[in-house]
């Protein structure tokens, strides 16, 4: 019974979550906090904070944790299957149909017409990330340098993107930790004096 409720709730979240990750968060809140009361508002906020700190899709992390809270590891599994599977099946089905008829008259044009649309979509995403990176940076010089370094590493040197991202994550983590330590040390020294 509880498994069924978990399945239905996360199924709904999965099929109505247009726009991916962040737009799905309110749906999780509606189902899990308001409707079924599986977690409290505070718990939910904690989940979200931790979910945002970890990599990977946010929806599956939330489903895993809430499912776990309700029915342990099995609950986590049911919640994740419910949130992921329906749309994956839809995706496989839809693309199979499109590719099966790709040589039929007109279908070639249909597939080709997708190209510019997806270019526009990724172009818009590029612009959004450029803006977020620019606005979120503490100094504009820093933002320009990191952008130039990214171009150098990815386009000129053609390094593996995973490696470049890994270095960026590691460096920013280490640098932030180091500057917090330094500030704390300075504060305590001033306090002692």
């Amino acid at each position: 019974m509880v498994y069924w409720q978990l399945f239905v709730a996360f199924f709904r979240i999965g099929i109505f979550g247009f726009g991916g990750g962040p737009t799905m968060v309110p749906l999780f809140h509606t189902e899990c906090v308001k409707k079924y009361k599986w977690v409290t508002d505070d718990d939910f906020a904690d989940n979200l904070a931790l979910g945002n700190a970890l990599p990977g899709p946010i929806a599956t992390k939330l489903a895993a944790y809430i499912g776990y809270r309700v029915k342990g590891w099995k609950g986590a599994l049911v919640a994740n299957i419910a949130v992921v599977m329906p749309v994956v099946l839809l995706m496989i089905g839809l693309l199979q149909v499109i590719y099966r008829y790709k040589d039929a008259p007109g279908v070639y044009g249909m597939i080709q017409a997708i190209g510019p649309v997806i270019a526009v979509m990724t172009g818009v995403m590029t612009w959004e990330f450029l803006q977020k990176g620019w606005q979120g940076a503490s100094t504009k010089t820093g933002a320009s340098i990191s952008l130039a370094l990214s171009v150098l590493a990815l386009i000129v040197l053609d390094l593996h993107p995973g490696l470049v991202v890994g270095i960026a994550l590691l460096f920013s983590f280490a640098y932030t930790t180091w500057s917090i330590r330094k500030r704390k040390k300075k504060d305590s020294e001033e306090g002692a004096a």
């Binding site: 590493a153 920013s172 983590f173």
Partner: peptide, 17 residues
């Protein structure tokens, strides 16, 4: 750290996208 890490990935993602 979370904020800094999210921020550090942005220029890389911009170039990749």
């Amino acid at each position: 750290q979370v904020k800094a890490m999210t921020q550090s990935v942005r220029p890389v993602v911009t170039v990749l996208l």
